[in-house]
Every structure is written in structure tokens, then in C-alpha cells.
Amino acid sequence: MKEYEFIEHTADIGIRVYGKSLEDLFKNAANALFDIILDYPSKQLKQKQITLGADTVEDLFVIWLNELISCFFADKFLPADYSIKIEDSSQRKQLRASLCGQDFDPYENKINTEVKAATYHNVKIEKSEKGYKVEVIFDV
């Protein structure tokens, strides 16, 4: 199963992401995001914990990506692997993630694309027999 593919968007960058589970979907989207930002094999040198909550799984998905963007550009942390747990049965959707990665200064090292943010525009997580699918547009 492919993890993601690019979709056309006039001004920005769009991706269609696939996952066997919600956790897999979130992880594949994170991998796609950092594939867009840079071409660099991150090392698993340190850990970072992320806890997020939202009213819908779609909101949680966008907040997750934006949290990773802020972690990279503000906290200068580049993740390499993710252990994600999503609780979506209660009214408030929750994500707990443990990230393995390394310190990385995007202002000192070469990166390819300065992704401004992930947007909520038309984000709809679809579930089928094959798994999960979602499209998201990044402002670049």
C-alpha cells in the first residue's frame, strides 16, 4: 500500500495520504510532510512527547501536522519515527505520540520547502475496507 501521493492544487501543495489504521494515516502524513520539507535522513537521538486534543478526527489530523511544523521550525526538532496512539471513541478526540528524532536547525541547514502550515480546507478522513484515506493542502 502506498503511503501518499501528490494531488494538484493551483497555489500550494496537496497530498492524498493512505493508512491501514488511523495511527498509520497520521504517521504516513508526517512522513510526507518531512519529505516535502527536506531530504535528510533523521537520526533517532532523542525523544519528544506530543499530546493533542480536538473536537473531530479531521481537526486532530490538521493540528498534528501543524504541531510537527512548529516543532521543526520553532523547536528545531526533526522527527525520524513515530509511535502514535489515537483515542477517537469519546467525544473529545485525543492523540498521544512519542517521537524519536534529532535536533536540526532549519536556519543553518539546507531545506527544500518552507511549509507554512497544513490547512483544514476540504480535509475529510474516509474509511473503507482497505483502510483510511485523506487529502490535505499545505500552504507553501
Partner: peptide
């Protein structure tokens, strides 16, 4: 630059919750 991107992200997150 990144300053404005972060301000916008911070407040879109807040305003999404304002809808309900």
C-alpha cells in the same frame, strides 16, 4: 515570514474550537 505563519496557526487552532 515564520513569525506570521506561527501566529496564524496558533489562532486558527483556537478559532476552530470557537465554531461550536
Amino acid at each position: 515570514r515564520g513569525f506570521g505563519y506561527q501566529v496564524c496557526d496558533d489562532y486558527v487552532r483556537i478559532m476552530v474550537q470557537c465554531l461550536s
